[in-house]
Design a protein around this nucleic acid. Structure first.
Lengths: 117, 117
DNA sequence: TGGTATGTGTAGTATACACTACACGCATGA
DNA sequence: TCATGCGTGTAGTGTATACTACACATACCA
């Protein structure tokens, strides 16, 4: 697995191949940070930025916010809020799901979505 | 719902009714913080302490760690680690479960535990 | 060859986090 | 009365977080 910075750099360079607006400077401007800061993040000289900044990056780069947050070692505040409302319930469930294979977890998500509960 | 501090104070005073070892000073000593710090936390003059300290408090007070952490607005690092390993999967699932009633979430946890997956 | 854009280096800053150290006044019991 | 324990007030500390500001060298291109 790549680091947060490496992954961002990769995404940005992919976008840049077809769109010159994805230079460090221009992306930084749209994301709302200084270019040197973004540069350092991409090269791992700075730790990943705040959740707010990561979400802005994800939107600009067309990446899944949860994935980018995860590379930064963060769980989104939105998800945390869901857990915090019913901590016992969700704590127990998540621990149960910890070692379940992907397809099983996915199946539960689908069944819930399809209203079988 | 009570705040973190109020809840801790309540728990401590309950324990104290039958065990003099639950003074602010003695509990603080066992938890590993200064008495004045614990006192301030209980009265809401300080924000909740670190996860480590909260877990120590939960153990001493016989409270569910996830519940105490939740009152502090924190999700345990252990749970976060589970989510961070498969962010897409868990993010999707948790969002699906957001508005599900307690009994339904509980039923899923039980069925997973009982090996029906 | 002068203007513009690029990535990056150095230095500094404001704020929050997570506490400690010590002192004070009150109560109790020997 | 005085040692012990109690809760709490004031002040200060070290570290991390999340950045900004500005300067520099390089490359393109008109």
């Amino acid at each position: 697995m790549s680091t947060f910075g490496e992954h961002v750099r990769e995404l940005r360079e992919q976008r840049r191949a077809g769109d010159a607006g994805f230079s460090v400077r221009q992306l930084a401007a749209r994301v709302g940070v200084e270019p040197s800061y973004l540069s350092k993040i991409e090269r791992g000289q700075q730790p990943p930025p705040s959740e707010k900044t990561i979400l802005s990056m994800a939107a600009e780069l067309g990446e899944d916010p949860d994935v980018l947050l995860a590379l930064a070692g963060k769980v989104s505040g939105e998800l945390q809020a869901v857990i915090l409302k019913r901590p016992k319930l969700f704590a127990e469930l998540i621990r149960q799901l910890k070692d379940l294979p992907d397809h099983a977890v996915l199946r539960i998500a689908r069944e819930v979505r399809d209203g079988e509960w």
